[in-house]
Design a protein around this nucleic acid. Structure first.
Lengths: 216, 216
DNA sequence: GCGGGTGATTTGTGATCACATTTACCAATG
DNA sequence: CATTGGTAAATGTGATCACAAATCACCCGC
């Protein structure tokens, strides 16, 4: 991962580089739930001082990507079962709407790209690569929802994914799944058919099913 | 407003005091859209140094309560009509769900409190006090949704209110409305009757109607 | 009157330091 | 062996400073 500005790069603020790198790590499940982080540690890792590290951490904490204890300690979030179920409800509420809005704009080129992402996802399953699985899974959804032309709604969905990142890692790392997501095929079929109710149902089922296993 | 810790107070971090004070100002429409803020100005106003001011601003920017330009300048957000409509859609999606979940737990004491808040709201209308109008209006919704036992969903709804704060100020300051919100009475009636579809519709209408006027 | 350029001021960014609190470690004691 | 006590290390917080970039104000020339 590129962390330093190099000559010719557009200069990005240090706090922003740190924010983006950490955000991706959290969202893709590269950090376990409850993982402690320190400002000095992050600063040293990224070759900056504590100041930009603090700003990045505050920003991520505001998005729910990190938790700050009453004494100021920073960790990745450990979600209760209730919270996980609530997050699943939110996904089940937002994402069918995003998919519906994307449906009239989903032409063949988009479906083709979704199929390619799905193939990469299946490959991640075969390799038992949890991080790649989560990444391609989210990429599948984001690619579709980008067509919805609803940036604020998509941003909310992404903060939900963020908060679920570490938990998803724990989930998919635990139950070594061997089957690629069957619901993605249903989503693709509904997209091709222009079937809005079917699409909503397929999305709802897809986002709900994975989390159910963890709350048992 | 109390901004300094006094002996006997539980010590709250400076950045957190500043965050809460600013957040309330933005959410309640005390700041106009596009209002510029400076780190040194905020720090001086709150009697602290730039460091906690920066942290509070980053946090608020992450929630969409403030906008940071490419050069780092901080302002309250100026929403496009498209963005306002999207925000209304999000409210129309989330808030009926929150109300539905609150419905089975809405006993008489809650309805009584809602009526009291509604009376304060009507008073704000009579006094042409836009800030008090927005504050009591949001308090009405938050009091109901708190019963939904869905903290993450409520938090998302609040970030939407936050982003709309300055715009609501501009809206309600412009069209000097003389009538108290008639939809709140429908909401209360549906609550008393235990009528879930009616409640969902009343909420949806209430959150949608106000914003429609701005996008014309 | 009006546009462009130049210097002064304002402003955000990042580093460093001092301080208070929390946490971790380890030994002494029961 | 578990528990308690104290000491040392680690950690977050806030202030201050230096720096660069952006912005603003003023003035000159047209």
């Amino acid at each position: 991962m590129l962390l330093q500005n190099r000559p010719g790069d557009t200069v990005t603020a240090a706090h922003d580089r740190l924010y983006r790198a950490l955000r991706q790590q959290v969202m893709h499940g590269e950090l376990a739930p409850g993982q402690p982080l320190t400002l000095r540690g992050l600063a040293k890792t990224f070759g900056v001082s504590m100041t930009p590290a603090r700003e990045a951490v505050r920003r991520l904490a505001a998005e729910g990507a990190l938790t700050i204890s009453s004494s100021g300690r920073v960790t990745t979030p450990e979600l209760s079962n209730e919270r996980i179920e609530e997050m699943a409800s939110i996904r089940a509420l937002l994402e069918p709407e995003l998919a519906s809005r994307a449906l009239p704009r989903a032409h063949f080129a988009l479906i083709e790209r979704l199929q390619a992402i799905n193939a990469a996802n299946a490959e991640a399953v075969a390799k038992q690569d949890a991080v790649a699985y989560i990444r391609t899974n989210l990429e599948f959804h984001r690619t579709l929802y980008l067509r919805a032309q609803a940036p604020a709604m998509l941003a909310i969905a992404e903060t939900v994914w963020l908060q679920l990142g570490p938990t998803m890692r724990a989930l998919y790392g635990r139950l070594r799944r061997n089957e690629p997501p069957q619901h993605h095929r249903m989503i693709l079929a509904a997209l091709k058919a222009g079937d809005e109710p079917g699409l909503r149902l397929a999305i709802r089922t897809d986002v709900t099913q994975g989390l159910r296993h963890l709350t048992s």
